[in-house]
Amino acid sequence: MNVRTAFVAAPLLILAYGLIRIADGFDGERGPGLAWTTGHLAFLAALVLFVPIFREMRRMLGGTPLATAGLVIGVAGLACAGTQFVIDIVVGFMAADHAGMGVLFDQVKAVPGVQLAVYDAGPFLFYAAQLMLVTHLAARRLVKAWTPLLVLLDLALPIIDRDFIPVGALLLLVSFLPLARRSAPAPRHIPVHA
């Protein structure tokens, strides 16, 4: 998958997660089950796509020290957020019901450092890096000045209510479309004839 596609696919996968999450809650509980697992796999796939996205943003910024710091912070945050989603998927498979998931989550979060690194502070590095890199791109006039505002709204809406994740994902898609157009095209492979 080329980076142009990643700029579009990542927000769409987050949108899918948000919609599946809402549907999963129709019975009053979220998880375990197919919706829980599918939604979390969608978000996990989006996180994987942010690695080339962050690298491309760094490239667009000329590899400046600030852009490199954004990349490093972003990848660290991706690792923490990715770990959280893997744990969520495993707990969903191990638990017989929603109450059982709560017991397993309590056990995981009781491990020293896990709560802070995987649930509280670590994933916020991913979001901070997004905002940092997009703001740097706007300061260099590589994207519109309103782009960081859309990314900030995308990050803030789920804090207000997680049911706003789909709205935030659409805002992220709008903010990423100009980046997709600006990103380097995938290299073309020219066949070699013998």
Rank of each mutant, 00 (worst) to 15 (best):
G39M: 02
P11E: 11
V48M: 13
H193R: 15
V174F: 00
A110S: 14
A128M: 07
A139W: 11
P65S: 00
M94S: 15
F93M: 09
A76E: 11
F164M: 11
L133V: 03
K144H: 15
P52G: 02
G18P: 02
L157R: 08
K109Y: 06
V111P: 09
K109S: 04
G74F: 01
A10W: 01
K144D: 15
A99T: 14
A121P: 03
W146N: 10
H193M: 14
L171E: 07
L171D: 06
A121H: 04
I20F: 00
G102I: 06
A45M: 06
L49W: 00
M94Q: 15
L155A: 13
I14N: 05
V192D: 09
V118M: 01
M132Y: 05
M101W: 03
A117L: 14
R30M: 05
Q130K: 09
A180C: 11
A95G: 10
G62K: 06
F124C: 10
A169M: 12
P185A: 15
F126E: 08
A23Y: 07
D161A: 04
A117I: 03
F85I: 05
L61K: 07
A45F: 00
P191Y: 11
I160H: 04
L71P: 02
G82S: 01
D97R: 06
L153V: 11
I89P: 00
G100C: 00
M1S: 15
T64L: 07
M132Q: 06
P11S: 11
G63C: 09
A156N: 10
L104S: 07
V151Y: 05
V72L: 12
V51H: 08
G63N: 07
R59C: 02
M132W: 12
A194D: 15
G70I: 02
G168V: 08
P112A: 14
A121G: 13
L131T: 00
L150K: 02
D106G: 13
G18C: 03
A67I: 05
L155S: 06
D24A: 12
F176M: 10
A128D: 08
V114D: 05
L125G: 10
P65H: 01
F54D: 01
N2L: 04
G92H: 01
A10F: 00
A99S: 13
